[in-house]
């Protein structure tokens, strides 16, 4: 294993890490699970797909398939001392334009900052790449719950510490991200839509999401504990 200690001054540039002769070949940890979340929405979860990434996952529903890979925690080139890791998310899609994707990735960073223990990894950076393999849904807001789920699996696959298992749901063109058993709101995303009501009331949408949150969280926990 190639692990650098980022808390100390690094060795010379050409230094090679110690490799023990009887280092075991990494076993293939690809696990697959298919479950029925709602009656109409089945989700397929897989992890440990990309061998040269620290962690990876594929989450698939009928119209969406996302491949997420995590690289890190790896050392940053920053000259100043950073007491916390910096989180970076890059979305790659053929369907949506870049500025839209960057806005979503900014949002995802805000949400994941709430649960990833960034203070455990000083002087490091964690990069997440989300590739859109199947993108049949037209609204980006529909992808948010799947993105959160695939990021969580990939982060745990990379053995990065998280303080909570968070989840997202999309109801009425509104994506809601919840944590702490649904008691805490971590993120909310609502885009303008054609069927706009007179006054915007989000209380009911959030309450609906809180009801459904536990089942999606349970599914994620079952998948992780089976691995």
């Amino acid at each position: 294993m190639n692990v650098q200690d980022r808390r100390r001054i690094l060795g010379p540039a050409g230094a090679k890490p110690l490799v023990f002769a009887n280092a075991e070949a990494k076993e293939d940890k690809t696990v697959k699970e298919e479950t029925q979340l709602n009656k109409n929405l089945s989700i397929s979860l897989q992890r440990g797909i990309i061998s040269n990434a620290n962690g990876s996952s594929i989450v698939e529903t009928s119209g969406i398939s996302l491949l997420t890979s995590v690289y890190g925690p790896r050392s940053t080139r920053s000259m100043s001392f950073e007491p916390r890791a910096t989180l970076n998310i890059i979305l790659q899609s053929n369907k949506f334009d870049t500025s839209n994707l960057k806005e979503i990735s900014n949002f995802l960073i805000s949400v994941l900052q709430c649960c990833v223990c960034l203070e455990k990894y000083p002087k490091s950076g964690i990069d997440l790449f989300i590739n859109f393999n199947i993108e049949d849904e037209d609204e980006l807001v529909q992808y948010i719950p799947i993105m959160i789920m695939s990021c969580m699996i990939a982060l745990m696959d990379a053995d990065i510490e998280v303080s909570d298992i968070i989840g997202g749901l999309t109801i009425d063109h509104t994506a809601v991200c919840l944590g702490q058993n649904g008691d805490q709101l971590l993120g909310l995303w609502k885009d303008p839509s054609s069927d706009e009501q007179d006054a915007l009331v989000l209380n009911e949408t959030i309450a609906k999401c809180q009801e459904q949150y536990s089942s999606s969280r349970q599914q994620l926990i079952e998948f992780i504990s089976n691995c």
Binding site: F107, I109, S110, Q184, L188, W189
Partner: peptide, 15 residues
Amino acid sequence: APVRTMALNNTYVKG
């Protein structure tokens, strides 16, 4: 709409 949440810093962010 749009209504959304946004982290304003990177140390105090939480739900």
